[in-house]
């Protein structure tokens, strides 16, 4: 595969224009971008009702390798998808700030890019080693995911 890719664990705000420019090759007519951001209010037992901010931590080298693995999984499932960018921010993120970005490019909008971006963010939440701590006014809680990866989740 020679499609453009960008996989990053970073403390910087992802630059949407730069990601779009990277993926916008001459044969690309559709780019689907998912971004996640910090919610100010949550309704789950045991979590602060009002989130002041989130603190993200990553096992950066493994995280970037797993992002590359997710891209390979996307190309297996949607072979017409071209460039892929996956970004996870780490550090302290305030309400409203972008936390993650998944962007998939294709020639046309019906060539799997929507499905691929959805798969990308779902898979990131399963296998990319990143953890978030919700910090509220009176206490903070590390969030743990529901998915338990096994060796079947390796490439």
């Amino acid at each position: 595969m020679s499609h453009p890719t960008y996989f990053a664990v970073t403390t910087d705000t992802p630059d949407l224009n730069a990601v779009t420019a990277l993926l916008k090759q001459p044969d690309v007519g559709a780019i689907i971008t998912f971004t996640g951001s910090v919610r100010g209010a949550t309704r789950r037992d045991g979590l602060p009702a009002q989130t002041l901010h989130l603190e993200y931590e990553a096992y950066a080298r493994m995280a970037e390798e797993k992002m590359a693995q997710i891209a390979e999984e996307i190309w297996e499932r949607w072979p017409l998808v071209k460039g892929i960018a996956i970004v996870q921010r780490v550090g302290t993120l305030q309400v409203g700030e972008m936390t993650t970005l998944v962007a998939c490019a294709a020639g046309h909008r019906d060539q799997g890019a929507f499905e691929a971006a959805r798969y990308g963010i779902d898979r990131l939440k399963q296998i990319v080693p990143v953890w978030k701590k919700e910090v509220g006014a009176d206490h903070s809680v590390w969030i743990e995911g529901d998915y338990r990866p096994t060796s079947a989740d390796n490439n």
């Binding site: 996640g36 993200y56 990553a58 096992y59 493994m62 995280a63 996870q88 936390t99 993650t100 963010i121 990131l124 939440k125 399963q126 296998i127 990319v128 080693p129 990143v130 953890w131 978030k132 590390w142 969030i143 743990e144 995911g145 529901d146 998915y147 338990r148 990866p149």
Partner: peptide
């Protein structure tokens, strides 16, 4: 070798 809880990124 690394030890960690189930992931919660995104």
């Amino acid at each position: 070798v690394a030890l960690f809880p189930p992931v919660s990124g995104g």
